[in-house]
């Protein structure tokens, strides 16, 4: 095999970043993709906000969809927020000391996630479909991805829950690629995989 053919057959390496608000289900989705394609999870899921406080990576994920093979690195980001209040963590049963420690780590994690944006090839912007999608953080993330010309997919998650309202999300983001999923139950996941493959083609 010539080196040109070898290069052509080699799966493209893609850094797939999971961005979004806190508790949107980024880690649950990253775990779903990790389990489907590498039989491994990326991180720990929790009801307590800011469970992911450092960037979590899963490398060498051999992904294939519609004939497109990719060598994915799943990069689960800390949720982006404009405030971090330890009192919120105490409502979930953490002690004052634990809450303060978590808050300090969360602020560092947010900065880390923002700085890493330029290293991402394709981004999944995960939105909690049970909440109003008009949080400024969503628009800020999308605006920055557009500014950096990064391909991205908006992923309303938790569509299995009764409060989920996909219509509101689609109305709010009409001009973008929106793929609703339930990361827990797998609804919509095949469509998401097809779309990741298409978006990866845009990456040089």
């Amino acid at each position: 095999m010539s080196w040109r053919l070898w290069l052509k057959s080699k799966p493209k390496s893609i850094n797939l970043g999971f961005y979004g608000e806190v508790n949107a289900g980024k880690t649950t989705l990253a775990n779903k993709i990790g389990k489907d394609w590498a039989d491994q999870e990326v991180g720990v899921v929790s009801e307590i906000p800011h469970e992911t406080r450092t960037i979590q990576k899963l490398e060498k994920v051999n992904f294939s969809s519609n004939g497109t093979k990719l060598d994915l690195t799943l990069i689960d980001m800390p949720g982006i927020a404009s405030s971090v209040n330890p009192k919120e963590f105490m409502k979930h049963g953490l002690s004052a000391g634990e809450a303060m420690q978590r808050a300090k780590e969360a602020t560092r994690g947010i900065v880390e996630a923002i700085k890493f944006l330029e290293n991402v090839d394709v981004a999944l912007v995960v939105i909690d479909a049970t909440r109003t999608p008009f949080d400024q953080v969503n628009f800020t993330i999308i605006g920055n991805l557009e500014h950096q010309k990064k391909p991205f997919i908006l992923v309303p998650n938790k569509i299995d829950l009764p409060d989920a309202d996909i219509r509101v999300v689609k109305d709010a983001f009409q001009e973008y690629t929106v793929i609703p999923v339930s990361a827990i139950q797998g609804d919509g996941i095949e469509t998401l995989y097809d779309t990741i493959a298409k978006m990866a083609k845009k990456v040089r």
Partner: peptide, 9 residues
Amino acid sequence: HTEEMNLIE
């Protein structure tokens, strides 16, 4: 949006 992200950071 870039300034917003900078402000959050």
